[in-house]
Design a protein around this nucleic acid. Structure first.
Lengths: 330, 330
DNA sequence: CTGTTAGCGCGTTCAC
DNA sequence: GTGAACGCGCTAACAG
């Protein structure tokens, strides 16, 4: 294996100079710099990362800790994070928590052991509720989940606003009796419920909320129960893409026609939402951008650890489709 | 920072013994083992991974190199890989190639630099065609993409068989004029075309294949062109989930009714395929299992590098839904 | 079974 | 601007 001293020998300089060139220290004369670079290329020298990390105590690695990478939101975030990291010569280590605080703690320990430069974290409800500030030995940027007052960098949707606007849209189209199916164990779900509640209260309408566990089949069961009510509510809102999927399955299973029998709206502009008749009205999240912003924020935090914390609140985009069409007067 | 010699001092033993206990060498007496473990716990000692890796020349890290993690197939595979790796105390480093041979080469170099224990790779068509055997300095397991004769471990669907059976199913339901929309730049797509071709030839029917680039909008455009034909073909098969999505979008855009106007079938049992009316007939891949098998194969290869190569060919499951219903006689 | 010791390959002083 | 030498924390070889 070719190592730094081989390069030094070949270039006729000391190992120190090679190291200086490779780490980009600007204290090397141009001639030696070029000779070192040439030698590196000729020998196809690759620095040993383990040795470098041992010596420098940095890993140039980013940790990504999410509940489940199969959640399309996190899939997209991970892609953005990997893109940016790759372009900066950094690595990404992935860890799934399944919302399990124990596994979450393991993942965070793992990141500490790896001496990651920083972590992008989507915390479980439990961790979030205990979260005051990041004292893990590495900087953390929160994505998707955040509570007012937490002293941490974060990138998230304006959940309250998005749910408020989505509800207002349904109300404007004449829907009054609305059921809000949301993830009860999710900070995000709760915030969206509050936005929905605010809109309903403003119109002096009662709030009908159905809390479900964040699983597709749970959402489907809850939706089926809702669809058995008589009279049927006029509209249903799902607080996430996963829940919206469950609701859509329930509607199909019961042959309920959208929006004739019931109007539908939800979150996350997944590809299939425009496929189911007559297209589902949703709040689109700028997921890729959120991932990109998260890692940019993290890199800035790594570069300047002492700046004030920042929360980046992004606006959801209302995409109107047929599922929320105006109600016919009866 | 607490390090191994602190633990040694505390336990009243040498650093060597601590190391032996921690690496699991079975040459330590039970009493010393327990005292070391106690000292580790008391001091909350965490071994320095960089130092360990430098010395032992192993990283206990698995590389996952795929075209795009957002492809649901790879998302699922990555989840399986991470699950198994986590349970074995191993890390996963992710890299997206976008089917770009240059980026692919960069990713593989990155993995070499990281001295990964092994890589799970879904190669681009170009790399696959040059692939004879893995000589990257680490073992490789191919997933999803493989060509006969390549000397490498691999986990893949029996693409020929799956497409053959899917075609036979359509034929059995009376569909004769079938258009096969497939990923022309994909080894998998081509293999599926061959299975389709075999079934058509057997029934002495002409093959109508439309090669598209593996992008949703490309598939939609191709499908739109197909739907402009007069007379309309009796059925269309999409060779992947992404292409099926494009086809479904085209059908919806043209208000074509399934299966009255045209029958539809495809690959990948994604959640939305049962949502679009009247449910899409698909070949389901055991994606999670394929990922699990891939990393298991890799771990075995790492343990015993000289065993003969193995290819695990998995069978797709035909899920019949309304979209391929039997044709009414005219 | 246990302890001593020599590096693993590199980055970073400190002289020059 | 450059080189010699030390040590990052650990594992493995060897000696006892």
């Amino acid at each position: 294996m070719v190592q730094i001293k081989d390069v030094a020998k070949r270039a006729g300089v000391s190992v120190a100079s090679v190291s200086r060139v490779l780490t980009g220290l600007p204290v090397v004369s141009e001639p030696t710099r070029l000779r070192v670079l040439a030698a590196v290329k000729e020998l196809d020298y690759r620095p040993d990362l383990a040795a470098r990390r041992l010596r420098s105590r940095r890993s140039d690695t980013i940790g990504l800790v999410v509940s489940d990478i199969r959640n399309p939101f996190f899939t997209e975030v991970s892609r953005a994070v990997e893109d940016v990291a790759f372009s900066r010569q950094m690595r990404v280590i992935l860890c799934n928590t399944d919302e399990d605080p124990n596994k979450e703690a393991s993942c965070l320990e793992l990141m500490r052991d790896e001496k990651v430069s920083g972590v992008i974290l989507s915390p479980s409800l439990k961790l979030l509720s205990h979260f005051t500030r990041a004292d893990y030995g590495f900087p953390i940027v929160l994505v998707d989940r955040y509570e007012r007052g937490i002293e941490a960098d974060a990138v998230l949707l304006d959940n309250f606003d998005a749910a408020y606007r989505l509800t207002e849209h349904l109300l404007a189209n004449g829907h009054r009796q609305i059921v809000f199916v949301y993830g009860a164990e999710s900070a995000t779900g709760r915030q969206r419920l509050e936005g929905h509640r605010a809109a309903m209260v403003k119109h002096q309408l009662p709030v009908q909320a159905e809390g479900v566990k964040p699983m597709e089949d749970q959402a489907r069961e809850a939706a089926l129960a809702v669809l058995k009510r008589s009279p049927l509510p006029q509209a249903v809102i799902a607080s996430s893409g996963l829940i919206l999927l469950g609701v859509a399955e329930a509607l199909r299973a019961t042959r309920t026609v959208i929006p004739r029998d019931i109007a539908v709206a939800g979150f996350d502009n997944l590809p299939w939402t425009q496929l189911v008749e007559p297209g589902l009205t949703v709040i689109a999240q700028p997921t890729y951008d959120m991932g990109r912003e998260a890692i940019e924020l993290l890199l800035q935090r790594i570069a300047t650890p002492d700046k004030a914390m920042r929360q980046l609140v992004m606006r959801g985009e209302l995409i109107e489709r047929g599922s929320s069409a105006a109600r016919q007067h009866t």
